[in-house]
């Protein structure tokens, strides 16, 4: 029996990037790892000084629009860390504004563009009207998920136009997503999405995909055992998804 390494999950800027509960996805990953007997450390990171030496998964939630300029400045010192994480295959989940601040350019106010961290090729123009609705996404084949649909909620003011090398997370079945029928951005281990709030709790298959990547990065071998505790939670998640899908019809 081998000793499995500790999985370290960094949640970036949780004090300003948890308006819709997106930062809670870090806790969801931690809970799912611990239920499988893994040792998981969940680290809130408010500045680069808080970064642990090793990081095996990263969660960055969304901030509200008025705080976006300040959050952008707070994120800039993380530029090199993001590049290193992408290169090392560290799974990153970035939600709504948290993701848009990592693109090349975003339109903060009408006609007023600022440079993002340019981790993800593409830009984020303002939409005519805010998108606020249930969002259903047929996941891209690359994600290798069995579920036919990712379910969540979107509430954002900007679309996304991906540049070279950026793939979509999936196709929009209901809602707005990127504004062109696609939703989200995938580059290597990076996933950006408008599915806000507890997207990993609602879509546990996606959570386990990120967790498996984190285990690999940490040098572990665990296959993610079945867990009665998670079966109960995942049944509730399935009912949550079914309730949304049914309400949309």
């Amino acid at each position: 029996m081998t000793t499995e390494p500790t999985i370290i999950i960094a949640v970036l800027l949780p004090s300003s990037c948890n308006v819709n509960g997106d930062a809670e996805n870090g806790s969801v990953l931690a809970r799912r790892g611990r239920a499988r007997g893994l040792t998981v450390e969940l680290v809130p990171v408010e500045s680069v000084a808080d970064l642990p030496e090793a990081v095996h998964a990263v969660v960055l939630g969304s901030c509200d629009d008025p705080s976006a300029p300040a959050v952008l400045e707070a994120l800039r010192p993380f530029h090199d860390a993001f590049i290193a994480w992408v290169e090392a295959g560290v799974p990153i989940l970035a939600v709504a504004n948290g993701w848009k601040l990592l693109t090349r350019r975003l339109e903060l106010a009408p006609g007023s563009w600022v440079d993002g961290l340019a981790i993800i090729e593409g830009d984020a123009p303002l939409r005519g009207a805010r998108a606020s609705d249930d969002l259903l996404v047929v996941p891209a084949g690359d994600l290798e998920l069995e579920s036919p649909v990712l379910v969540g909620y979107e509430n954002h003011a900007r679309d996304f136009r991906g540049g070279t090398g950026v793939k979509a997370v999936g196709a929009v079945r209901h809602g707005r997503g990127n504004g062109d029928g696609t939703e989200g951005a995938m580059v290597g281990p990076f996933i950006g999405t408008h599915l806000h709030g507890p997207v990993l709790a609602k879509n546990p298959e996606l959570a386990d995909r990120l967790l498996r990547q984190a285990i690999v990065v940490a040098g572990g071998t665990s296959m993610l055992d079945d867990s009665a505790e998670l079966r109960a939670l995942d049944e509730i998640a399935a009912q949550t998804r079914a309730q949304v899908v049914t309400s949309i019809g």
Partner: peptide
């Protein structure tokens, strides 16, 4: 009407739930 998502949150917080009845 949001019983399932409410229960999902409680469940992830480690709260025991006896019954979910929307």
């Amino acid at each position: 009407s949001k019983a399932w998502e409410a229960a999902l949150q409680l469940g992830y917080d480690g709260v025991e739930i006896d019954r979910i009845e929307p």
